[in-house]
Write a protein that binds this DNA or RNA. Structure first.
Lengths: 177, 177
DNA sequence: GTCTCCGTTGACTGACCGTTCAACCACTCA
DNA sequence: TGAGTGGTTGAACGGTCAGTCAACGGAGAC
């Protein structure tokens, strides 16, 4: 519902109906409509974060780790388009999620640390700010997701695979020594 | 108002009060609240587009044109933060602006053509899809703007200048042959 | 059988807010 | 001076919707 209509466009009645319950029941499980969105976000972002952490902890060179992160992000579109839509359209917009900023920040921090690791290992050039680079990297990927969400970019199987390859190529080449 | 509170959070009364008129008067100049946002968007995005077009038409090598576009985008933050906030938070989210998709698409098309031009001239590698690259490029820049909007990235004079340099470095290096 | 618990229901409330419109000036022109 | 014009006002309206709550009923306990 949030994906289809946005936060404000999704009515509590719709959400409950979609879940097959009376809308009053929703207030037994959630404190408010906000709380529903917050819960959706927390659960799903938590999953993503866990996977990012797993990639960071793996015994791979930094470039491979970046590739792993890119794949996780881009493949989420095929696995759960509604989730991606909510992330792209609601996160960072509504003030509702301002509390969760810390969790979003953590994802960027992981990317940043991977880049720094690559710089230390001599795989990435040292003359770029790792923090900024992490934002550029994440932003590029998110924009591709946005293109898919808005139906502005083709998202067939081949297209998604090509996007993955292109994003990785450009990012790694851009950071390469 | 839209920048500060978002579209839904900004009340017609607030907007009118901020403009120093009664809220009824707003409906002499705009058909609806939507229309206010659409007008703001159309006017300002039109300006940006014009400047992008000027860069594209200039007699410069493609890489310099990309630099020009990056500078225009990133410097908008200092020139008009409220505008950037509205762009980042409302465009692509609210369905209100779905009609204007064509104008947004035009900006991406310009970037894409510049990249293709660079590929034809041998300045950029030919093995990346120019369309995807344009989304990656724009997305990276937009994410930096988002970081500033959300107060997650430092935006002092030096910081902005550094972001400009970093974005340009990474993008050009990523696309370079 | 009946008592209790609690998940469940949906009519209702109260507030909010975009939009309308009849009245009101301020100003010009005859 | 009086009529006309058009920008301006703000009280009132109508519709929407998140959130409440009194009542229901099925399942288990004894």
């Amino acid at each position: 519902m949030f994906a289809e209509h946005g936060y404000h466009g999704a009515r509590v009645g719709d959400i409950a109906e979609d879940a097959g319950v009376a809308h009053g029941l929703l207030y037994h499980y959630f404190a408010s409509k906000d709380d529903v969105l917050r819960t959706i976000f927390a659960e799903n972002w938590g999953d993503l974060l866990e996977r990012f952490r797993a990639v960071e902890a793996a015994a791979e060179p930094a470039p491979d780790k970046l590739v792993g992160i890119a794949k996780i992000l881009l493949r989420t579109w095929r696995n759960d388009p509604a989730l991606v839509t909510v992330m792209v359209r609601e996160v960072a917009r509504s003030q509702l999620l301002q509390d969760q900023v810390e969790e979003v920040r953590e994802a960027f921090a992981i990317v940043q640390r991977v880049i720094e690791e690559g710089q230390a290992a001599g795989a990435f050039r040292r003359d770029v700010d790792a923090r900024l680079a992490s934002w550029l990297f994440y932003g590029g990927l998110e924009e591709v997701l946005t293109g898919w969400v808005l139906g502005q970019l083709p998202d067939g199987d081949d297209d998604v695979a090509r996007a993955e390859r292109t994003a990785i190529e450009v990012a790694l080449h851009g950071l390469a020594v």
